[in-house]
Amino acid sequence: MVGKEGVDEERRDFLLTATGTVGAVGIAAACWPFISSMNPTLDVQAQANTEVDLSGVAAGAMRTVAWRGKPVFIVHRNPEQIAAMAQSEGGKDPAPDRTRVQEPQWLVVVGICTHLGCVPNKTEDGWLCPCHGSVYDNSGRVLQGPAPRNLEVPPYHFVEPTKIVIG
């Protein structure tokens, strides 16, 4: 139907490659809004910060607050606990206590076991995870059990001596 004579093959190849490239880039760009729509929506992102008033937490007590839907443990440690933690380096994932707190009397950790995501229960000396028996101390450091890492310290800062913003 179309004669091969007079066909500039190089020009053909260039046009085909250029068209194909523009088309591929266009399709990829058109995919982006759909992929992006599955990311957290604006109202979910607006929940990213949690403000906590610490004044009601007595020494030795713990409060659990929700941050991004996850539990965050806030422990008001007493002087003995602070002293005990300062002397220990932790267990499987050694870290000095001062790297885990901003003010020694306030420990703030994400209450999700680093093993498989259960919420550990508070004990006298720290936490015990009910799912697979990981044991954490009062600095949130794992001492024994299958958990690979210490409890995560979330980003937070003090806006007042007794008020923090997590996130």
């Binding site: 809004p33 759909f34 992006s36 729509s37 929506t41 604006l42 109202d43 979910v44």
Partner: peptide, 13 residues
């Protein structure tokens, strides 16, 4: 309205 305002590119979709 949530799709229109909060979802990323929800208005477009």
């Amino acid at each position: 309205q949530h799709i229109m305002r909060d979802v990323n590119y929800g208005w477009l979709i």
